[in-house]
Amino acid sequence: MHEFGLGIGHNGTVTSTPVNFAAAAQRLNRPNPVMVGTIVWLGSEVMFFAGLFAIYFSLRSMAPELWAEQSGLLNVPFSLVNTLILVSSSVTCQMGVFAAEKSKARSTSGNPKDWGMVEWFFLTYALGAIFVAGQIWEYATLVSEGVTLSSDSYGSVFYFTTGFHGLHVTAGLIAFLLVIGRAYAVKSFGHREATSAIVISYYWHFVDVVWIGLFFVIYVLK
């Protein structure tokens, strides 16, 4: 008792060990729930496309001669160019994310080196829109050649798989507009706006990888 006030040291007559754990509250970067949630949701999207791939493969194994005949109608060079456009849109999207992570919403000069998130995302939007337009042109050509959703199992599964992918790209385009709009809506571009830019890039890369899978299966393997 007489040691009171002499600072930290022996705790008197108490025999229990003093609690001396290191302070548990370190500075932590908590996982961002928006990003983790987006990844988990994309995991469910993997399984959605797994269903589509499974439909494709099992129908193909049932009717190999139909596949041999119909897949000859595909315009592979055209689709390859379209694929490259979509892949390059993933690159521009990532450039936009790098700018967003630096809280750089708008460009400081016309030089692409100084572009902000908004400029990169507009470019990504344009590339994605070209891809969708290319898909529609390809559909129109194939329909004129007699491949339709209801023509045979090849037509059904072709439009089903690429169509659902196209719908995903279109939804991504709308999401890009919403994220760009947020950048315009705020006076200072902050953490929340950057988060939405990052999660849409997750989605966009995912849709891009799915297309690479589809392109490989439908146009290369046939």
Partner: peptide, 10 residues
């Protein structure tokens, strides 16, 4: 294919 694709993608 259905099972194989589902398992691989799982």
């Amino acid at each position: 294919w259905v099972g194989t694709v589902a398992l691989v993608l799982s």
